[in-house]
């Protein structure tokens, strides 16, 4: 019996939901917090992969939107007094609206320089965040306890709720990417990734598609930034707009796991977390290992770990 790729992807997603969703009944708070971090990381990686792996848009500035999400969540709740749930929902349109002018400016540059340009913009975001009145300047501010308590009065319940919330958002993001990739738009996207000129001849407008991807990921990254703030309990420019956490690590995760595949960021993130456990004490060595692994992957198999089985099968049959 031959099933369509879409069916298989959805089935895999359903199975992982059945396995992962009930875990809070089994595991402790520490593990749950840990897994929440992992969910957020995978989600951010999925969105980077959506841009780079599927859309061919390499950004080194996606941490801008994580930070913008954190800061807007803080602003909506603490400064405007909105309910935390409303505030969290509002971070999505906020991030999406913010990414519109960002994309407009960046797309004025030739494609190759988009990456560095996005980094400049992220720097501007970070430096500006340190100057906004009411956000505590360079050292930042903590979230007020009642904002955090909206997600659960007791610590244990809160950790559970945030776990489920993060997992639900991750599942929705993955579901969205699966559905988009198997839709007509998704095929247009692949056509564009393979050959932009040919895609244009088929009536696909690459810039419009890239903009759509950028805006969608901008909005969702902001939401993830807000979620992350619930984990960190404070905003500050260096932490909320962390280049290392939200861009460097994320790029390594996707590149090593497998660019252009939905499973890639998941493999990459799990491997990353395992490596971190074992190598974190070595500090710089850990980063050097990651950098070298990413380079080796790019040279040997740009499709990452996820592409290795197919590659080896092909070699054996050849």
């Amino acid at each position: 019996m031959k099933r369509s790729p879409l069916f298989l992807a959805l089935a895999a997603l359903a199975v992982s939901v059945i396995v992962v969703a009930p875990l809070p009944f089994v595991v402790g708070n520490g593990t749950m917090r840990y897994m929440t971090d992992l969910f957020i990381m995978i989600a951010v990686a999925q969105l980077w992969n959506l841009l780079a792996g599927f859309g061919g848009v390499v950004s080194i500035g996606q941490h801008a939107f994580i930070g913008a999400g954190a800061y807007s969540f803080f602003g909506f709740t603490t400064l405007l007094g909105l309910h935390p749930f409303t505030a969290m929902a509002l971070t999505v349109p906020f991030g999406a609206l913010l990414s519109l002018p960002v994309f407009t400016i960046l797309s004025r540059m030739r494609v190759a320089y988009f990456a560095i340009g996005s980094w400049v913009l992220a720097e501007v975001f970070l430096l500006t965040a340190g100057k906004l009145p009411g956000f505590g300047g360079g050292s930042g501010l903590s979230l007020r306890p009642q904002i955090v308590k909206a997600f659960g009065a007791r610590t244990g319940a809160r950790i559970e709720n945030i776990y489920w919330l993060s997992f639900a958002i991750l599942v929705l993001i993955v579901l969205m990417i699966i559905l988009v990739m198997h839709s007509r738009k998704g095929y247009a996207l692949r056509a564009m990734r393979d050959n932009e000129n040919a895609a244009m001849a088929l009536g696909v407008n690459p810039n419009a598609i890239k903009m759509m991807l950028f805006v969608v990921s901008g909005g969702l990254l902001s939401l993830l930034g807000a979620l992350n703030t619930l984990q960190k309990l404070r905003v500050n420019p260096a932490g909320s707009f962390s280049l290392i956490d939200w861009t460097v690590f994320i790029i390594f995760i996707v590149v090593i796991g497998g660019m252009g595949r939905i499973i890639g960021p998941i493999i990459g993130a799990v491997l990353f977390v395992l490596l971190r456990e074992n190598l974190a004490n070595y500090g710089p060595v850990y980063m050097i290992v990651l950098g070298a692994a990413a380079i080796a992957m790019m040279l040997y198999e740009p499709g990452g770990l996820a592409a290795l089985p197919a590659r080896w099968r092909k070699r054996r049959s050849a």
């Binding site: 390594f252 590149v255 710089p284 050097i288 990651l290 070298a292 990413a294 380079i295």
Partner: peptide, 12 residues
């Protein structure tokens, strides 16, 4: 992305 990896290696 290779240059990106190189950048992180050199820094560290």
């Amino acid at each position: 992305l290779v240059a990106f990896g190189l950048s992180i290696i050199l820094q560290n």
